[in-house]
Write a protein that binds this DNA or RNA. Structure first.
Lengths: 347, 347
DNA sequence: TGTTAGCACTCAATAAATGTGAGTGCTAAA
DNA sequence: TTTAGCACTCACATTTATTGAGTGCTAACA
């Protein structure tokens, strides 16, 4: 059977209707609302065909029909029209994001907030994984209570601080800090191996008199700090919107799923080309998402993927709008990251 | 009418039963399960009295009875037995908290996690507001892309970093940083007025050649950073447990309420004596919490309230357990904060 | 040959009728 | 004062009827 022009228009109409009402769509509604100039009987015949072809599903004999995952997939691939985001929305978005321009974390949080506000669904975003984290400065500060604070600052302005439970006087702390700084400054985190860290060993034991165990602790500690510098976090916004399209039990399962951030990160990273990526219902490998859709997009710095942004919603979400929103927001993030980390201001 | 011994025992039994089943409690159940040696008819009479006295509520004529807010209040004030937390639980708790001992944020997050795990309800915690935030060191680092990074480290090891969109070369950044450091080092954030910040003005313009507007920006910026140092955050854990004792609509309202962290902070801070504080149902001023109970406790550093920790759950929660858990966890936090910020190790 | 009016049929959802049982209050006897 | 006994209440569950939106099929029509 061929998916001809008319079938397509009917399928389109059914999807549109279902996105709006979330109720199974009957032949009469289609025949009346859309001026296809066809009676309900004809539509019925076509709908029977579309069902046979796998695009429609009938919940029960006397109900209307609901688009299948395949229908959404076809819609997304071939039928979806470009959604144009309103000028006002863009202005607001711009304003909101640029207000917080010099706090990385705030930008990321804000971006997920805006995404969920724009789409009305659950949004999530990972903090950037800057593959070019270059150490700009290291410092060790002596604190009260027998602790010292290691601070590592990267070229991009990311600050990692970590408390070391080791008592040093102000002077030793400064000396040790200077050794660490000298060794790591200018290096990229990727290039910092444990060997490099260990190379400080002699100098440290020369200049400071530390028990061997403390020395090893310090080296491990520095290495950990460097590793943690590349850690990414993930923010979830508006999880409660799940309640709008799920019953309590499913919602609870979803919430539980969203709590496991490690899994979530894996999920998002799986697809990483440059465009907006859509996974519809059963296309999701994760059981909990089988009747949701997941729309994700990357944001980048220097043409390299830096992080991920996405939306979880019902399969009948307004894909066009979600895609356009994600596209737009990710581009803004790109721009802001660029301004923040590379160029002064490109305009 | 007098709330005599027998009435009390019956009330106790009803509350116990209702906490377990969440179903209205009938006279037969009480007569059978508790060996009060009384028939259901007698219990019935007593229950009628207790209802008249405002301790019980009958959802409808042919239903059992449910404890009123007043009953819970009475229970909490006068009847509640001390709950003893299991040794194993304490050990686990200790292990979990001490594992992350040198990361303030992690401790706080972990504490809320443990609280919700222990009680099975929604937990929340504020990050500490350390009223003795003493500046240990300030630093200004020049970044790529025309930005500079101001870093302020406190005696307690809190690090505040903030990006300033001002292009400085490495040297000017160092000079400016040194001026800021000299001015603020050793001062407590409470004592840092804008006047103090402004006192740097002359020295800065002497040593660096900056346009007047940039100078003002810098001063404002430093002041902001100092103010933000005292900002507290609030973490919420296991919000999804609200679904266990609320219908979807109420749950949604609760979620929305929990999103407004400012309001939430206000709520928690309202009561601030040293003991565990309980607000039952209508005792809560906030509409959304009228049929929940809110149990909060402070944690402190140096005998001064530093932050707040709490649980939101149904009115029929196991108050004894929640109170004991909060009490225990808050004391652990006290201990860890003390170790971290003041003494080496008190043992 | 494609379209459509018409009709019998299906079945979820809603409403109405009915039964069940856990719970009550009251009374009268122990 | 306690309690057995009984009539009464009323939410909840179960059954039964009603409704109506939707279908598929057929036969007539353009």
């Amino acid at each position: 059977m061929e998916l001809n022009e008319r079938k397509l228009r009917i399928l389109q109409a059914i999807i549109d209707e279902y996105m709006g009402t979330a109720e199974p769509v009957g032949s009469r509604v289609i025949s009346k609302k859309n001026n296809l100039g066809l009676s309900s009987a004809t539509i019925r015949n076509e709908m029977a065909d579309l069902e046979e072809m796998g695009f429609l599903i009938q919940p029960h004999t006397s109900a209307g029909r609901v688009p299948s995952d395949a229908a959404y997939r076809y819609y997304v691939n071939s039928m979806m029209k470009r959604y144009k985001i309103g000028v006002k929305t863009i202005e607001q978005l711009q304003l909101a994001l640029e207000q917080k321009i010099n706090q990385l974390d705030s930008i990321i949080k804000k971006a997920s907030h805006i995404t969920s506000a724009l789409t009305d669904y659950t949004a999530f975003i990972t903090t950037p994984e800057l593959k070019i984290n270059c150490v700009k400065k290291c410092e060790l500060v002596n604190l009260s209570g027998g602790c010292s604070l290691l601070i590592i600052i990267t070229q991009a302005g990311i600050v990692k601080n970590k408390i070391l439970t080791l008592s040093l006087d102000d002077n030793s702390a400064a000396v040790l800090g200077e050794i660490i700084n000298k060794t790591l400054c200018g290096l990229c985190t990727n290039d910092i191996t444990f060997d490099i860290i260990q190379s400080m060993q002699n100098e440290i034991s020369d200049k400071l008199h530390l028990p061997p165990k403390a020395l090893i602790n310090i080296l491990d500690f520095v290495y950990e700090a460097i590793e943690e510098l590349d850690d990414t976090d993930i923010y979830i916004e508006n999880a409660k919107s799940i309640l709008k399209y799920n019953d309590i039990e499913k919602a609870q399962k979803m919430f539980t799923f969203l709590e496991d951030k490690k899994n979530l990160k894996k999920l998002i990273k799986s697809d990483s080309d440059d465009k907006v990526n859509i996974k519809i219902g059963s296309e999701n490998e994760v059981e909990e998402l089988k009747d949701c859709s997941l729309v994700t997009v990357n944001y980048s710095l220097n043409n390299k993927t830096a992080g991920h942004l996405g939306v979880i919603g019902p399969k009948r979400m307004n894909y066009a709008k979600v895609v356009a929103s994600l596209d737009c927001i990710s581009k803004y993030i790109d721009k802001i990251l660029y301004q923040l980390y590379i160029g002064e201001s490109e305009e």
